[in-house]
Amino acid sequence: MTDIIASSFIFAGALFVFIGTLGLLRLPDVFCRGHALTKAMTLGTTFIFGGAMFFFDHQADAIKLFVAMAFQFATIPLSGHILGLVALRKNVPRFKHRDTLDC
């Protein structure tokens, strides 16, 4: 029974990552894409690693997975942040919604 829950967790994680990639494609400028991708990936990896921990009975492997999850949980937002920061400082052209504001 736990296997099914675990693999459904992994499936959900994969789904989130997929949705994140969709966001990456559809959204107009760097910051929105960064925003979407980072959030989706963090959640996705946490689900995948969480699900995977149930499959490895040997305790050491589970700990390794947990450590990887913690590392990913900390670093993906951090890398998203740094990228956004550098993009902002280099004032990359940003998306301005035309039809509502000026034209």
């Binding site: 900390a74 951090l78 942040h81 740094i82 920061l85 550098v86």
Partner: peptide
């Protein structure tokens, strides 16, 4: 350096 407090902390 990349000056960002979050990075410095983490």
């Amino acid at each position: 350096r990349v000056k960002s407090p979050i990075l410095a902390f983490f």
